[in-house]
Design a protein around this nucleic acid. Sequence first.
DNA 1: TATGCTATTGCAAGTATTTTCAATAAGGAG
DNA 2: CTCCTTATTGAAAATACTTGCAATAGCATA
Lengths: 141, 141
Amino acid sequence: MSCTEPALQTLRARGFRMTPQRLCVLEILHNAPEHLTPQQVYEQAARAMPGLTETTIYRALEFLAGHNLVNAALTANGKLTYELARRAHHHLVCRVCGQQVEIDHEILLPVYRSLEETSGFHINTSHLTFFGLCPHCKETE
Amino acid sequence: MSCTEPALQTLRARGFRMTPQRLCVLEILHNAPEHLTPQQVYEQAARAMPGLTETTIYRALEFLAGHNLVNAALTANGKLTYELARRAHHHLVCRVCGQQVEIDHEILLPVYRSLEETSGFHINTSHLTFFGLCPHCKETE
DNA sequence: TATGCTATTGCAAGTATTTTCAATAAGGAG
DNA sequence: CTCCTTATTGAAAATACTTGCAATAGCATA
Ligand SMILES: [Mn+2]
Ligand SMILES: [Mn+2]
Ligand SMILES: [Zn+2]
Ligand SMILES: [Zn+2]
């Protein structure tokens, strides 16, 4: 499939390999409407590729995240979920009802700049999760 | 110990209890030079209170974090570590060597404000972790 | 200080995630 | 197209974390 062509090139250029298992994970995340847990990815992947193991899913997700082909996001209960890497963005999620709002990366650029200036670091966090209370839950305490 | 007095009041006022196990966890974090993993807390706690279980440590950390007496922080590999809640701050950690820099919460206030304004949310994320490359590792690629 | 309610603990069992290692297969070279 | 190197997989075992439940012990009240 065409949407995975660039990913394939990226990996090979770095001496790594594109496998059907990794393609399967990318495919699943590509069609997912939202972030998925490793378990959810596994369930779908196992359906498409019987015999594939959970171990492989965990490894594929970590690997793909390391190569910026997928992003990991933190949930309110401290667990990681994944999504296909796309336009840089962040999340704001309600601790009570779980409602999510997406945040453009541009909004954070100024802070990134000032943090880089004062620390000398090059920041490459690509996917932050802020927590809080949504307009509704803010009312009902 | 006096440093735990306020914590005790906080909990009782809300109908919860201060137990020797929770005090032990607070005590350990109070003396820790940096963030600790649940396992590290357990090792120290078990030495002070034989019989205490890992289950209790996990529950105490989550409970105390829920009451803002301790803060959870994300490590580069997606795992949670804990520290005693103190002045609001965040972290900037190098993905290569692990070097950490602390960030004053004030620096992020403007962004918080603008995020709250545009989303209507009340943000209460108290402990963010930014990742990147430190000045040194930035050089050596 | 004695009593009662119920939040909290420890234990056991369940689920999730990581690690180790031998067998397999991606993909560059010829 | 075949061969070779070695990145990657699957299986099993080890660890990490969560959940259910009965016994225990904070602490509010009298
Ligand atoms: Mn996202
Ligand atoms: Mn901290
Ligand atoms: Zn809400
Ligand atoms: Zn570094």
